[in-house]
Write a protein that binds this DNA or RNA. Structure first.
Lengths: 177, 177
DNA sequence: CTTACTGTACCGGCTGGACGGTCTTGTCAA
DNA sequence: TTGACAAGACCGTCCAGCCGGTACAGTAAG
């Protein structure tokens, strides 16, 4: 029934993220992903020969999406710092009530090393921000606070109210200068 | 070989945390925990009738340990705020290179609801801090930055150097007032 | 135009193994 | 004797990975 013109890879990746978010990270099985993506298990394995490759694909697409979004924001208003762009981007990401990256937990359970590229990316981003910021203390506070915001969103922990998050973002932007 | 009076429960809990940390959160099986704790599978199931109960035990002991440590610190120097105590406690916790709570990933994979008590605890802590702090903006930044520090430690992400972490902590303490 | 070949994309059943949980039997200390 | 385990066999379930098909698409010879 060869579907006309669908990029199966992206469909599968999106389906995997959906399954992890909705059924829980522990329910991210190949069959669940295949069924969700409207693809047979064989078709899934054709695109991703192993579960590890699927996880890797998830990480890579996550990272490239993030980098693209960050670059776009940083380029759009070149008078503002990368740090500000990062703050705003993260705030927008965390606006969405449901965590979009629950699959990360599945990846960690599979093998903690899957997160290595993400760590490397963060390290690189941090170095980039250091080069642009004069006050290291402020940068540290901002960077870690964003990290905290992202982690809370990831853990689906709604400790902060809407207003509080807005206040947080504005405080961070002020600190960032 | 019945050992005299060793509290098996705690031994098992500690073993579970060790297994998750060393073999990865995905390798936290009952057999692995039992073997690590020097206990038979039957013995483990005697103490924790089900895996869910084991996870629950992990969460509860984590929370009670944390609360105890926080209370001790806050009481030791009653001239300092709870926020300062929380900052210092978290800094000390993150000093240890290896994350001590990888089991959390296992718990999430098993069932995300296991984290509910932890979320509730954090919410409660946040409310307590709000009552004590006059500047909500500063509190938010501090609270989230600590969250970020803890999450980085949890994910075993060593983006910050030793010096940077110290600078961060002193910056936070300054913001906390 | 047709037939035959080839490669791509995908289907779906199968299996071997791991895991959680149960149950039975044995053992030792209080 | 009884409570707190030890030891491990056993079962049902689930799942990743493999494999043998299948339905096209493109190409190219005849």
């Amino acid at each position: 029934m060869r579907l006309p013109r669908a990029n199966s890879r992206e469909k599968i990746l999106a389906a995997a993220a959906d399954v992890a978010r909705e059924a829980g990270p522990g329910s991210l099985s190949l069959e669940a992903v295949a069924s969700r993506a409207g693809v047979s298990k064989g078709g899934l394995l054709y695109n991703f020969p192993t579960k590890a490759k699927l996880m890797q694909g998830l990480v890579e697409s996550y990272l490239s999406d993030f980098q693209k979004a960050l670059e776009e924001r940083a380029a759009a208003a070149d008078h503002e710092s990368v740090l500000s762009a990062y703050i705003k981007l993260s705030a927008d990401d965390c606006e969405r009530p449901k965590p979009s990256a629950s699959w990360m937990f599945s990846a960690i359970a599979e093998d903690p090393d899957f997160l290595t590229p993400i760590k490397a990316f963060k390290h690189q981003l941090f170095e980039r921000l250091k080069a642009e910021t004069e006050d290291l203390g402020s940068l540290l506070v901002c960077f870690l606070a964003i990290e905290g915001m992202r982690s809370m969103n990831l853990f689906d922990s709604d400790v902060l109210s809407e207003d509080e998050r807005k206040l947080l973002v504005s405080s961070l932007l002020k600190i960032a200068g």
